[in-house]
Amino acid sequence: MLDNGIICALRIDGQIAAFFEGFKDEQSILIPRLAIDTDYDRYSPGLLLCTEAIRNCYKVGEIAKFNLLRGTEKYKYDLGGITYFTNNIEIDLRSV
Score class of each variant (00 low, 15 high):
2 L>G: 05
2 L>S: 11
4 N>S: 11
5 G>D: 11
6 I>H: 01
6 I>F: 07
7 I>M: 12
7 I>Q: 03
8 C>K: 13
9 A>L: 09
10 L>N: 10
10 L>C: 03
10 L>W: 14
11 R>H: 13
11 R>Q: 13
12 I>G: 08
13 D>T: 07
13 D>E: 15
13 D>K: 13
13 D>I: 05
14 G>E: 12
15 Q>L: 09
15 Q>Y: 10
17 A>P: 11
17 A>F: 11
19 F>I: 04
20 F>R: 01
21 E>S: 09
21 E>I: 04
21 E>H: 02
22 G>H: 05
24 K>G: 00
24 K>P: 01
25 D>I: 11
26 E>A: 12
27 Q>P: 07
27 Q>I: 07
27 Q>T: 14
28 S>T: 03
29 I>E: 05
29 I>S: 02
30 L>F: 06
30 L>I: 14
31 I>V: 13
32 P>M: 04
32 P>W: 03
32 P>H: 03
36 I>E: 08
37 D>Y: 08
37 D>H: 08
38 T>V: 07
38 T>L: 09
38 T>H: 12
39 D>N: 14
42 R>G: 06
44 S>R: 05
44 S>A: 14
44 S>E: 11
45 P>C: 06
46 G>H: 06
47 L>S: 10
47 L>P: 02
48 L>G: 05
48 L>Y: 04
49 L>P: 05
49 L>M: 08
49 L>E: 09
50 C>G: 01
50 C>M: 15
51 T>N: 05
51 T>K: 15
52 E>K: 10
53 A>W: 00
53 A>E: 06
54 I>Y: 01
54 I>G: 01
55 R>C: 00
55 R>T: 05
55 R>M: 00
56 N>V: 08
56 N>I: 09
57 C>Q: 06
59 K>M: 06
59 K>G: 00
60 V>Y: 03
60 V>P: 00
60 V>I: 09
61 G>P: 02
61 G>F: 02
62 E>D: 13
65 K>L: 08
66 F>H: 04
66 F>K: 02
68 L>Y: 04
69 L>H: 12
72 T>K: 14
73 E>T: 10
73 E>M: 13
75 Y>D: 11
75 Y>G: 07
76 K>H: 08
76 K>Y: 06
76 K>W: 12
78 D>H: 15
78 D>L: 15
78 D>W: 15
79 L>G: 10
80 G>L: 08
80 G>I: 09
80 G>F: 07
81 G>E: 11
83 T>D: 04
84 Y>S: 09
85 F>D: 06
86 T>K: 10
87 N>S: 10
87 N>P: 03
88 N>S: 13
88 N>A: 10
89 I>L: 11
90 E>K: 14
90 E>Y: 11
91 I>S: 02
91 I>K: 12
94 R>K: 07
95 S>T: 00
